[in-house]
Design a protein around this nucleic acid. Structure first.
Lengths: 340, 340
DNA sequence: CTGTTAGCGCATTCAC
DNA sequence: GTGAATGCGCTAACAG
């Protein structure tokens, strides 16, 4: 069913039909009604794809994310999709996994689909000093003129806007918090090598330096590379035991994510440790489930929901030519609960 | 950058460029190489939207779901997207919420985008006897020729395939399980009115009838309508207290979802009940977090991951004209843990 | 007020 | 082997 079919039935031209569909002025009430009736009777729906071709606008935006199963990301995607949909955009959400190749594939996929904007969630989409810049170059050459908003990462490109959660500072303050809570041997548990994890780790070190210069720093990086919840928890569980061996005097474990922290708590329970009596545990993310455990999990809220909402709005602003700020930083907040 | 731009640079016609892009035979090795080189140099990417217009195929499928934040659904979407993407399809995933209007809006949106197939996850997309059939009619008129796979629901339409988890039977067996565990007063906690919840509730009643005909049935339906995790847990928590008032002799609460069960456990703890000593708790879904609580949550695994994987394959089969089975039922499985 | 024409980017006849 | 012409479904500029 095309506008031509409708036009024929109505005895008018296709452009007339197009006009009534798009509510353009300059049409007699009589023909408007006649056409309208036919449209409804035939259950006509315009092909937005064809429309996009001539209008040079797809009303589509892409969302890139490492793994939709990570609840933090799920919430972000939900918020962003709702916000963009309200403004008429349809989202294509892609879980890239951790490989660079896959990320590049999806960048090309979005280009092929002629998306009008892109939101990338996660620090792995940013550039660090130690990268060869391949990702940045590919983004530049494939999406060089598409507005892009990066959540929790930075990419120095003229079409990229950034919004980041101040996790480094937050981790620093988490150390201060634990020290205020009388902890004497704070160790740090991290896993996958991501820029975000590097920042948090740096925050741990500088926090120790600032607030407890005499305390030895104790870092443990758990092996493994997948970041889905199941793996993260399992990894934290193993790591907790390993850390108790490596750092027998530790009385607080600061974890790079809540999932790791949850696993960590499991592991500590496995070996009979009391939380927070023997060891305090603290995570990052403010995941829902931290509230449901016994004891409830103290965590650093990195405000990802707020970041996501802002990201969507920044993209909408950029799409409407309103020039949002190039870079926004959102402060974090410590959520005090029972585990620390 | 279009094929015409490339054609001009190469001194050939657009059709020649099109041929090398699509690896069609009948082109001299020389021009093929020349064009190929230009394509790469210019970072050319075909517009799949325009291609779709002429080929009459969008290589897009839609996924409809009530709320992506429900972890059960998140996993389903992840699995389906991966599977379809491997076969060249791009997914548009839409969280419809609970309103019928929104569902219909999104049905139309998918029609506008000319998706080639649709997967709907959740019983709310099916039809029950007590519905006025509006949803079915709208699906028929807007997506009447589009292959659709329904997960956990049924829609009697020639272009719809169904895959359902046998939750009714599973709930029945859950009752039997609790009785084997010496429970004497099994009550049932449910919430939102969905077909799936109706089936489970029916399973509860028939289970009681079958395995403990003398036991009085005790049903409580918690008020509220949103199914996101936060709300579900909160609702379960309140409900647990209410149920202890209403049914003071209950020694087992069977919950319609794991999130409700998790909330339920919180609520029971709030009022000093011991689990499973005083009261056993059991859920449905086999959510990851059931394993992480203390005590771990006994649950009915409704095999949603398996259902999802099958749904994707059924759609692919239908898309390729391979005629999959019209309806498939997947049996559930009780996962024994500590709460019951 | 309405119809004709052209073109969005691409693939596919059908000639040559 | 390759190019010119045509059309996918739609909107827009220009006539009338």
């Amino acid at each position: 069913m095309t506008i031509y079919d409708i036009a024929k039935q109505a005895g008018v031209s296709a452009s007339t039909v197009s006009r009534v569909i798009n509510r353009k002025p300059g049409i007699s009430e009589a023909t408007r009604r006649k056409v309208q009736k036919l449209l409804e009777e035939n259950n006509y729906t315009p092909d937005v794809t064809a429309r996009g071709l001539v209008m040079q606008s797809s009303w589509t935006v892409g969302i890139l994310i490492e793994d939709i199963r990570v609840s933090l990301h799920t919430d972000s995607v939900y918020i962003i999709e709702q916000e963009l949909m309200e403004h008429g955009y349809t989202c294509i959400t892609l879980s890239t996994g951790r490989s660079l190749e896959k990320k590049l594939d999806f960048i090309r996929l979005l280009e092929q689909r002629r998306v009008e904007g892109v939101i990338m969630i996660g620090s792995m989409f940013g550039e660090e000093e130690n990268t060869d810049g391949r990702f940045r170059r590919e983004v530049a050459s494939h999406l060089g003129t598409t507005p892009i908003v990066l959540v929790n990462g930075e990419l120095k490109l003229p079409n990229v806007w950034c919004i980041i959660s101040d996790e480094e500072r937050g981790t620093e303050e988490s150390v201060a918090y634990l020290i205020r809570k009388q902890r004497k041997r704070i160790s740090y548990l991290t896993d996958v090598d991501t820029p975000s994890n590097h920042l948090k780790r740096r925050g741990y070190f500088s926090g120790c330096m600032k607030y407890a210069p005499d305390m030895p720093t104790q870092l443990y990086q758990a092996p493994g590379s997948d970041t889905n919840p199941t793996d993260s928890v399992a990894r934290g569980r193993e790591a907790a035991k390993e850390m108790c061996r490596l750092f027998p005097d530790t009385d607080a474990i600061l974890c790079s994510t809540d999932m790791m922290a949850i696993g960590c708590m499991q592991g500590l329970k496995d070996i009979g440790k009391n939380i927070p009596g023997d060891i305090a545990v603290m995570g990052v993310d403010n995941a829902l489930f931290g509230q449901l455990l016994q004891p409830t999990l103290t965590t650093l809220d990195n405000k990802m929901s707020e970041c996501s909402r802002n990201a969507a709005r920044m993209l909408l602003d950029a799409l409407d030519g309103r020039e949002p700020s190039r870079k926004i930083i959102i402060p974090t907040e410590i959520i005090e609960r029972d585990s620390a």
